[in-house]
Write a protein that binds this DNA or RNA. Structure first.
Lengths: 119, 119
DNA sequence: GCATAGACCTAGTTTATCTATGCAACGGTG
DNA sequence: CACCGTTGCATAGATAAACTAGGTCTATGC
């Protein structure tokens, strides 16, 4: 039985978007789909979170956008990462891993009942 | 050069508190100190975050509290984890790790400049 | 006596997610 | 053609959980 998709923890969405855009330029809707696929269905991004996030990124010049026409003739807004965005990505990913390691130090060794005494 | 203490990512504070209380009962102020110590100074918890978190935990019966007198003669409010709290801890820690692994799948392989093409 | 640290607490702000809604174009099917 | 599900963009308001900034009181050390 698969689990319900989880929200992106606050602060992580911008980082994930930048990471996908570091690989290739994408339009908004596809970004959300990619996050869901890549996470194996664990993460689910709502459009009401996605588009505000893209606006934030644009405002701080971490991404650029360009309207483009698909083969179908349809207009989509394609986002690309900037130099500023790449720097932000490296910084936030580093901080994320640091914080996560710290949290892991605190919650380590959780068993069902009691915990293992360490020293 | 050490870094500034980071905030607890939203949703993680309750989990960390429960994890410390699973080890031993503590009063509020000490919980914050422990989180800072154990994280090697990476995490810093403000009292304005701590006490509301303890209230939440109390309301949902994840912890119990008892006023106790220290050797100094001072009154402190000591918190203990409940059965409900232990169950919550296991559940939230499992979910946290799941989500974190998913995020890691997405942001993996970030280098300074461009990324490694995988397949 | 007075400053510093320990210990508790609350009000209001901020931020980033969500839900809910709206609109429009494309694709396939009866 | 009419319909409907999916794609695609967007905004408004709700919610949650951290924060800042303030306040009170007690023990300890100089």
């Amino acid at each position: 039985m698969p689990h319900e998709p989880q929200n992106a923890p606050p602060g992580t969405l911008d980082m994930m978007i930048l990471s996908l855009l570091a690989e290739e330029s994408l339009h908004g809707y596809l970004i959300a789909r990619r996050i869901e696929e890549r996470s194996g269905g664990v993460l689910g991004i709502e459009e009401g979170s996605l588009y505000p996030a893209l606006q934030r990124l644009r405002k701080r010049k971490a991404v650029t956008d360009e309207w483009s026409t698909q083969d179908s003739g349809r207009e989509v807004r394609v986002y690309s990462i900037t130099r500023v965005g790449r720097a932000e990505l490296v910084a936030t990913a580093t901080r994320w891993r640091l914080v996560n390691a710290a949290i892991e130090k605190i919650i380590q060794d959780i068993k069902g009942g009691r915990r293992v005494k360490l020293a």
